[in-house]
């Protein structure tokens, strides 16, 4: 397929930068070919036929012409629009975060169908959560990020690590391999890839309270549809966020820039 001059691909735009007079250079995560780079010519003009098809994250069918370095976007057709995502600040930030994580995690032209499916599912969940959040008539419920949206992002992080081959260990100690006991004194080490038991506490980078461990396990092993709505206190949420951020930072060799924005947004 790659040596055909014109090809078709389904994908989502992860990143775009302005180029030249009115062009944009896109990083597209395609289902068929993984991450590719393409140019959308004239896309910044209001009369551009392409402009509406190269919005961030929409699931789109692209027609592309193979170029030497960059493919050229010739046509588009949107398959799924996550229209509520950009209508709340937290959900829109989460969209950026998903895009940045995938962009950092994958190499160019490396097909990752499972990651693609995960990304689409996560964006659908966030979009549905944003719609629910927007139509919630109780102002008090809008004080923090919606519980379901938060869980969708954490589920994405854990599943992404799994698909990249870095499944974190939350059931046994990563040092002595003994099964973890339901106690408050467990610890965690991102470089070793998971939890450490109290006997190996000298390897711990941070503590792992029992509730945090339970939440991480629950998100790791439960199908999304079966995952209960979790009403957690801020400390536990921050703890879960912190554990997963350390893991991602370690495995991606880079702290994700949008994590801070997401973590501090309500």
């Amino acid at each position: 397929m790659a040596n055909e001059r014109v090809y078709r691909a389904e994908g989502m735009v992860l990143r775009r930068i302005d180029y030249g007079e009115a062009d944009r250079i896109l990083t597209i995560f395609t289902r068929e070919q993984g991450k590719i780079r393409a140019i959308a010519k004239g896309a910044r003009k209001t009369t551009s036929r392409l402009a509406g098809y190269i919005e961030l994250l929409n699931r789109t069918h692209f027609m592309l012409a193979a170029g030497r370095d960059l493919s050229i976007v010739t046509q588009g057709e949107i398959r799924e629009r996550y229209e509520h995502l950009s209508r709340t600040y937290w959900h829109a930030t989460a969209g950026y975060y998903i895009a940045e994580a995938i962009d950092r995690a994958l190499e160019d032209r490396e097909p990752q169908t499972a990651v693609y499916t995960l990304a689409c599912a996560t964006l659908q969940r966030l979009n549905a959560d944003a719609a629910a959040w927007l139509s919630d008539p109780v102002p008090a419920n809008k004080a923090g990020p919606a519980a379901r949206g938060w869980a969708a992002v954490r589920n994405f992080e854990i599943q992404l690590l799994d698909l990249l081959g870095y499944r974190p260990a939350f059931h046994h100690c990563v040092v002595c391999e003994s099964a973890l006991q339901p106690v408050e004194q467990n610890g965690f080490n991102a470089e070793l890839g998971g939890a450490v038991c109290p006997a190996c506490a000298r390897y711990a980078q941070r503590t792992l309270p029992l509730l945090t461990l339970k939440v991480l396990r629950l998100i790791q092993v439960t199908d999304w549809a079966a995952l209960p709505v979790m009403r957690l206190d801020t400390r536990t949420r921050d703890d879960v966020d912190g554990v997963l951020q350390q893991l991602l930072t370690h495995h991606l060799d880079h702290a994700l820039r949008s994590w801070n924005a997401l973590h501090h947004t309500t």
Binding site: A51, L56, S86, R87, T88, Y89, T93
Partner: peptide, 14 residues
Amino acid sequence: PNYEGDYTATHIAQ
């Protein structure tokens, strides 16, 4: 009128 612009507008409105 794009993701970045909407994002900025949502932030300012909030």
